[in-house]
Design a protein around this nucleic acid. Sequence first.
DNA 1: CCGGATCTCCGTACTTGTACGGAGGCCGCT
DNA 2: AGCGGCCTCCGTACAAGTACGGAGATCCGG
Lengths: 218, 218
Amino acid sequence: MTGRRTRVMLADDHTLVRGGIRKILEGQPGIEVVAEAADGAAALDLVGSTEADVLVLDLKMPGTDGIDVLRAAKAIRPGLKVVILTMHAGQEYVARAVKGGADAYLLKDSAVQDLVAAVSAVMAGQTYFSPAIQQQLAGLLRNGGQPPSGTQTLTDREREVLTWLARGLSSKEVAKELNISVRTVETHRANLMHKLGVKSVAVLIQVAMREGIIDPTP
Amino acid sequence: MTGRRTRVMLADDHTLVRGGIRKILEGQPGIEVVAEAADGAAALDLVGSTEADVLVLDLKMPGTDGIDVLRAAKAIRPGLKVVILTMHAGQEYVARAVKGGADAYLLKDSAVQDLVAAVSAVMAGQTYFSPAIQQQLAGLLRNGGQPPSGTQTLTDREREVLTWLARGLSSKEVAKELNISVRTVETHRANLMHKLGVKSVAVLIQVAMREGIIDPTP
DNA sequence: CCGGATCTCCGTACTTGTACGGAGGCCGCT
DNA sequence: AGCGGCCTCCGTACAAGTACGGAGATCCGG
């Protein structure tokens, strides 16, 4: 629109996928890819050192929580537009990404043209969300703002307990870890089960992984 | 090599990733992409209906077990070369893929040129494996053939119990499901824990997902 | 044919998790 | 100040999982 090409940075841990996205974007006349990163830390380095207009960010990268990268990127360079590109449509994920200032949220099973459209949209100061994501957003808005409808948002403490549970600690061990009573951990655990609507630890873990609440243990 | 271009089919559930891979391959002079599929069933349809030399197959697709697709594809058209392209390097995954007749096994964090090299290799009647995969294979071969070293292979029954556990059933419920005693289920459960080297159901589920033994509950 | 692996079942003792229900302190918002 | 959400802790009773160790049946391959 401005006559200058849009400069894009890519952050995705899968080299091959990153390369493919690059090819797609480079096929567009108005877009040029100026940098790539394979993890959150490298992405933030780029944000600080490279002049770019848009960051295409995969939320699922080893080590770092993608949402933290998003927030940090926006803090470092508020004018930077961020397009979230992930395979997860979990409510927790979406809610935290939007609150973190994401300008677009695309699923990896979107059409190729959607990616281009998303980049164009954010450059025009607009937002862009995949259809599935728009539904999530509608659900979020309907309920006032923060608390999603079906899946309730977890409290910080619950999320913390959950991550330790995911690492295989028993309630007793989590209690020691957090210096709280076993009963308290059990309360959090019960609340987690209820909030996520599951009845076993096995499914709890899977839901948590799918929603992007925890990352797999390496 | 033959003067004719290599015809490639793509099977990956993520449209955007698929599109990217297509762009990468189409940038190569000797390669043309002749078809795409978003799930296992569609991939098998293509194998039956389309003349192609190579199938680039993502093992993680909704609904179908990628290994089954691999085996079926080889059964339908034995001459077809199959390049596995996935983000999982789990031993179970690799072992089953190789036994299923995979000609190449690439990780999604491979370099772009590795994909091209893999396609060329299988067309020349050779195999191609990512470095990380080669290590897994070495481990497999060292132990005679079937039983991997660190992670032991699971028996069919154990895998069966595991999938039910992953769906949230208690030992008692699994026992009813399989018409066996609760004690037996508990034995299998204990063996699973030992074989996979974990001490909690939470980690068990994660390892199982990472190794490709179970697929996430939808 | 025998050994090994697998699947099956059992008991017992102990540890954990689950399901109730109740309660006080803290903090932010109205 | 009052309200509500969150975090914290408690008891009790029952269900489930864990850790031992043992054993018979089948099936397959050497």
